[in-house]
Design a protein around this nucleic acid. Structure first.
Lengths: 132, 132
DNA sequence: CCGAATCCATATGGATACTG
DNA sequence: CAGTATCCATATGGATTCGG
């Protein structure tokens, strides 16, 4: 069995920081999907309307943008304001929570940029060491 | 795929940090999937053997552990050492690159833990403000 | 203009059996 | 013990259509 020090042994044999029904997974699932992070970053400069977002992201379908925004809104990362006009106007912007998330995300993005060469090199190396 | 005809000038506006064929997406796809991050965190304390990882993660199948490790190895985040013994023994450990990734990841995990209540509250709020 | 509903293709994850 | 191969279920993403 596992004797992980920082893990209080539960009756079941679960051992890790990321147990299954896990808040951390919640977050990572959100930034890990295809569009959420992109939407958040697009909203960083300021408020955007629906089709404005669509144009800026450019290759996102209405459907996915709609779904993504709804999820982000549910999680309190983005706020939605609908103006009762004709034609309708809906504006989206980052909440403070959403903005605060962009800080650690930026660190990750920075890592990615900085270490991209290393990752690519590793991939090349892998291909060449092939006896597989 | 991209190259939309009615696309306004992307170049002059906020340059999208995440263009489509994107190194950042590469990384996020890796930590965004079901198991990679969990494996990396499990390896943080030190070297682990294959079935040792399986037991610690507990609910991962051999298949997914194998796939995940191979990907992490390809990307240079994890190193694999096979000992020519009978029965075979294979050890995995974080590379320096893998360890360096855990730093920004830790920031994200910290954010998740810290703001989980806020996210849950937002979800509750959403349920109540919704139609019905 | 905003976005929900429908329908569909593919990607991802898993159970199991098999191999060296 | 450490995987790989096969087969299958579901999740995710997208094109199109419809409606407020």
């Amino acid at each position: 069995m596992n004797d992980n020090p920082h893990n209080p042994d539960v009756s079941s044999s679960e051992s890790l920081v990321l147990a299954q029904p896990c808040p951390i997974r919640d977050v990572l699932d959100r930034i890990g999907d295809q569009w959420s992070l992109l939407v958040l970053l697009t909203l960083r400069p300021g408020t955007r309307r629906f089709n404005q977002l669509r144009r800026e992201i450019d290759d996102i379908s209405k459907q996915m943008l709609s779904r993504t925004l709804k999820q982000l809104e549910q999680d309190g990362l983005v706020s939605r304001t609908a103006y009762p006009e004709v034609p309708p106007r809906v504006e989206y912007q980052l909440t403070e929570l959403g903005q605060s998330l962009l800080t650690p995300v930026a660190a990750l993005v920075a890592w990615a940029e900085q270490h991209q060469p290393a990752v690519n090199a590793a991939r090349e190396r892998y291909k060449h060491t092939t006896a597989r």
